[in-house]
């Protein structure tokens, strides 16, 4: 097992990619009276992990696969695997990423959630370009609003030398911790109890990441598409608010 420091660095909520400003739909769920306490927060996190968490992790893993094509077929590449030597501006890579971007759009029915994903992608890209200036970010699709966050994450993790399953883990973990931390701030929940809840979800998070990493071998149209009607509904209601504490 190679050093996990880069994994920890990229999974850390303090990595400057805007995570502190996103509640992952929790702010709207709290306002709707659907999340009020630890029990309902746990159910929220479990559902979010199985839906947005799985989809985001699978697309991050798929983007990582595009960046490191020699690892095709292996969800657990050797640490020595390096990002593809294909030069920046590779038509194959930019075509594959554009396809993933369109596939993720088709899995994100709510315009507010598409905008949030692209906004988070921009924030992550800002950090990624500052830190891994050699990574092939120029191959990301020039979609208005920027590329979706999981695509940027996949390229960034590849540039950092992380494996595909580590990439998926960061994505799945981020969908949990962002909302959990927002729960502490919005509901005044006991932070120890919220952390205990995250400990209880750790196996599910690892399992989701493993599923996502395996799914990345499938063609883009077959990637997970787990839907959550309330996530779409909450996101659109949230977008109409005059005052929001969180960006999502």
């Amino acid at each position: 097992m190679a050093t996990p420091s880069l994994l920890l660095l990229l999974a850390d909520g303090r990595f400057p990619a805007g995570a502190h400003a996103h509640s992952g739909g929790l702010e709207a769920a709290v306002a709707a009276g659907r999340v009020t306490d630890l029990t309902s927060l746990e159910a929220f996190l479990a559902g979010r992990l199985a839906t947005a968490g799985l989809v985001g992790a699978a697309f991050a893993a798929a983007a990582h696969r595009v960046a490191m094509p020699e690892t095709v077929g292996s969800a657990h590449p050797a640490r020595s695997a390096r990002p593809s030597d294909a030069p920046v501006g590779s038509p194959a890579r930019s075509g594959a990423l554009a396809r993933l971007d369109a596939e993720l759009d088709a899995r994100t029915a709510a315009p507010a959630l598409r905008a949030v994903s692209r906004r988070q992608g921009r924030a992550l890209l800002r950090a990624g370009r500052s830190i891994w200036s050699d990574a092939p970010f120029a191959d990301l699709p020039a979609t208005p609003g920027g590329a979706h966050q999981p695509l940027v994450l996949g390229l960034l993790c590849a540039a950092a030398g992380l494996s595909r399953v580590e990439t998926a883990t960061i994505a799945a973990y981020g969908t949990l911790t962002g909302a959990a931390s927002a729960g502490v701030r919005l509901l005044g929940l006991d932070p120890y109890q919220v952390q205990a809840l995250l400990v209880g979800l750790a196996d599910a998070c690892d399992g989701t990441a493993a599923d996502a990493a395996r799914a990345a071998d499938d063609p883009p149209e077959r990637l997970p598409a787990a839907a959550a009607p309330l996530a779409d509904i909450h996101a659109e209601i949230h977008a109409t608010w005059e005052v929001r504490l969180f960006a999502s």
């Binding site: 400003a21 996103h22 969180f246």
Partner: peptide, 21 residues
């Protein structure tokens, strides 16, 4: 307007992307 997720200091000091955007 920038939403700060109840962390106003984070948005201007530690994680400035939303403000730069």
């Amino acid at each position: 307007a920038v939403e700060t997720g109840c962390c106003p200091h984070t948005a201007i000091r530690d994680d400035i992307g939303a403000n730069l955007d």
